[in-house]
Design a protein around this nucleic acid. Structure first.
Lengths: 221, 221
DNA sequence: TCAAAAGTGTTCCGCTTACACCCATGC
DNA sequence: GCATGGGTGTAAGCGGAACACTTTTGA
């Protein structure tokens, strides 16, 4: 007779607003860790682990169709007090607005990445790995766009990179580099109603990016 | 009542010999896929997933204390015909000699990476991901040394990189770069009994590497 | 007219790349 | 003495980093 192990998924969902990088947490309604904040997630059913992650995200936060990548699988024997539970952790990127619209304002909330409450299970460790993965990945894959609205200014894009990487970037060099690899398209539109010179709005062109990707390309911020 | 899922581990073990990159396979003695070659692995017991991977490696191949990193977790519903099974896949690097010594010569064997037999389950897909991970990781972390004997010549090191990356490298540039980041130590010894000018033997200095690593360093071949 | 951010080029340096010949050994 | 790989330096070009001022808008 075989040792039984439960399988769950957990998602570290990142968003970006004026104040910086945010993460989406759920307040647990049941034991264990009732009342504690936790990463959205739950048990895997008769479905693939990715399907489970997307289903739980939708059920608990209303999010659908977001950028989602597998992060790491956490399998210490004692990470769940109830039973031996292995969790497949994921990280997701989205616009904060997508959640505000979708959530029933109930138990989900955004927290600044450096002001997380005490989390259930080993979710703090999962978050730490996710944060590090995001920092690393953003430098060689243009996944950051998932955090921005469809149209954005170059300054917004730069701020995103500064927040994720945790250091300041040079404005001129940033623009030069980011425009050089041409998957950014000038929409021709400008910001409206800003008390300063309005900035051009750009969008990320996935088609162009895919093309470059095949040509083998590496560079980034 | 909850849907039951089995949890396994599988390891893609890489080795290097004169002919190139090799991978270690096990011939399955039981159904399903009885008689087929497969990655070493098995069910997780009352232990962490990493402990399970190391235990299975030791039981099935005799390998102990090898370099081992988590790769990806495969969780399609139908990847195991018996039942819903999620597998946490790992990749390992070792000297081929370590296995020849340890194995009871029974059911484990090395295969050239480009001449694999038909594998059990979705192990071919796991291998493909592992191969790609190795190619990527070797460029920014000095994990390749795990494949070489303790003392090696620069030509052996270069061949390793050429095999893993799948392209030729310039001898002078390679030596310049690899010696520049100084975690390679000249042991002062030379090859013996070669029908040509004997090469110097170097070793990888983990201490020095850790020091560099903290200083934030990136470059590689 | 003021405040605030947008937008824009050049120089310097270091790394990457390309490239060819002499050397030490075993047989 | 011959075959085999070991070992070495330089020049050119490219990409990354540093750096300051003018422009446009709303109030």
């Amino acid at each position: 007779m075989r040792h039984k192990i439960a399988v769950t998924v957990d998602c570290a969902v990142f968003g970006l607003d004026q104040d910086g990088l945010k993460i989406l947490l759920i307040k647990r309604g049941i034991a264990p860790f009732k009342g504690r904040w936790a990463l959205p997630g739950g048990f895997v059913r008769r479905e693939s682990v990715e399907e489970a992650a997307r289903r739980e995200l939708k059920e608990e936060t209303g999010l659908d169709g977001v950028f989602l990548e597998q992060l790491y699988t956490f399998g210490s024997v004692d990470r769940d007090p109830r039973q031996h539970t292995v969790t497949v952790a994921w990280y997701a990127l989205t616009h904060i607005a997508a959640v505000q619209a979708a959530t029933d304002a109930s138990s989900a909330a955004w927290f600044a990445e450096d002001e997380l409450p005490k989390l259930a299970f080993d979710h703090q460790a999962i978050f730490d790995v996710a944060r590090e993965r995001l920092r690393g990945k953003v430098r060689y894959r243009p996944i950051g766009f998932e955090l921005l609205p469809k149209r954005f200014t170059l300054t917004e894009l730069q701020r995103l990179y500064e927040v994720v990487l945790g250091r300041d970037l040079d404005k001129r060099n940033f623009r030069k580099k980011v425009l050089a690899m041409d998957f950014l398209v000038d929409t021709g539109e400008l910001e409206r109603n800003v008390p300063r010179r309005p900035a051009r709005l750009y969008r990320f062109d996935r088609r162009k990016y895919r093309a470059l990707e095949r040509g083998g390309f590496e560079m980034w911020v």
